[in-house]
Amino acid sequence: MSTTADRTPTRHTAGVFDIRTIIGTLLGIYGIILTAMGLLGDPAYDRTGGVNANLIAGIALLVAGLVFLAWAKARPVVVDERELARGDDGNAVHEAR
């Protein structure tokens, strides 16, 4: 006799192990460092053609990191534990719709 709990799949999101979260976090960290160097360090205008390359690259990395984190939050990867435990289907990870 099966109960309702047996038929409902156990599902959770990949969370911090989603590659988009890892990439977004790393881009954000590098973006913070480069933005701080662009604001506080030597802009080296003579070597970069008159632009503050650290500041521009830092802001671009911050934006890219936020895009990755927003993407991971908007469309989380859902892991179906029963499919994963069964092991006969290699496609156990699906994006939430």
Rank of each mutant, 00 (worst) to 15 (best):
K73H: 14
A96K: 15
H12P: 00
K73C: 05
G15T: 05
G90P: 07
L34K: 07
L66S: 07
K73W: 15
G50T: 01
E95N: 09
D80V: 01
A92V: 08
A44P: 00
D42Y: 02
N91E: 14
V77K: 11
A60Q: 01
I33V: 15
S2W: 08
G15L: 05
L40W: 14
R97N: 09
M1F: 09
E81I: 11
L66H: 04
R75G: 07
A14E: 14
L26C: 12
G58M: 02
L39S: 09
I59E: 01
V77N: 06
D46H: 12
H12Q: 10
A14S: 11
A92I: 04
R47G: 00
L69R: 15
I23L: 13
T13N: 05
G41I: 02
I19F: 12
V63Q: 06
V79L: 15
N52M: 02
V79D: 01
A72D: 07
V67S: 07
Y45S: 04
T3K: 00
M37D: 14
A57G: 03
L69Y: 13
W71T: 05
A92P: 00
F68R: 04
I59N: 00
G49V: 01
S2Y: 13
A74C: 05
E83C: 02
F68K: 03
A70P: 02
Y45W: 12
L62N: 02
V16P: 00
A5H: 10
T4V: 14
R82T: 09
A5P: 00
N54F: 12
T21Q: 11
T21R: 15
G38A: 06
A92F: 15
N54M: 08
T4K: 11
